[in-house]
Amino acid sequence: MPPPAPEDAAPSPSSPSSELSERDRAVLAMERRGWPGPGAKERAIREGLGISPTRYYQLLGALLDDPRAAAHDPVTVNRLRRLRTTHRARR
């Protein structure tokens, strides 16, 4: 039997579970919110999710490629995918 995955590891898209973890749903919910000013989102990430903003954006990037995330919140995921594509094209 393989060892359990670390708690902060993002589930792979080929994972047998068809639902997102509570943390993954919280990351998507964080992206749906509006932010009043600089630093507010980073503070909310640290306080609300208990992870660093760097780790948050790593998890978010993996979620954008996860079909379960698109099924859970297609509007947010598709918006973020468009932004990612735009940002990559500018580079």
Rank of each mutant, 00 (worst) to 15 (best):
M1R: 08
M1V: 10
M1N: 06
P2L: 08
P2V: 10
P2N: 08
P4E: 06
P4H: 06
A5G: 00
D8Y: 08
D8F: 11
A9W: 01
A10T: 07
P11L: 13
P13C: 05
S14M: 10
S15L: 02
S15C: 04
S17M: 03
S18E: 15
S18P: 12
S21G: 08
S21F: 01
S21A: 06
E22R: 14
E22V: 10
R23C: 02
R23G: 05
R23W: 05
R23S: 02
D24P: 02
R25E: 11
R25C: 09
A26H: 11
A26W: 02
V27K: 08
V27Y: 02
A29D: 14
M30K: 04
M30Y: 03
E31N: 07
R32Q: 14
R33K: 13
P36Y: 07
P38G: 13
G39F: 02
K41V: 04
K41P: 00
K41G: 04
R43K: 14
R43S: 07
I45S: 01
R46D: 00
R46A: 04
R46Y: 01
G48V: 05
L49Y: 00
G50H: 04
G50L: 05
S52P: 08
P53L: 02
P53E: 05
R55T: 13
Y56I: 01
Y57E: 05
L59A: 10
L59Q: 11
L59E: 10
L60I: 00
L60P: 01
L60Y: 01
L60T: 00
G61Y: 03
G61R: 00
A62Y: 06
A62D: 10
D65I: 00
D66E: 06
D66H: 02
D66A: 00
D66K: 02
P67I: 00
R68M: 04
A71M: 09
H72L: 03
P74G: 06
P74K: 08
P74L: 12
V75F: 13
V75Q: 13
V77S: 09
V77W: 07
N78D: 13
R79Q: 14
R79C: 12
L80H: 11
R81E: 12
R81H: 08
L83P: 05
R84W: 08
R84A: 12
T85G: 15
T85H: 13
T85F: 10
H87A: 12
H87L: 15
H87T: 09
R88Y: 12
A89Y: 05
R90H: 14
R91E: 15
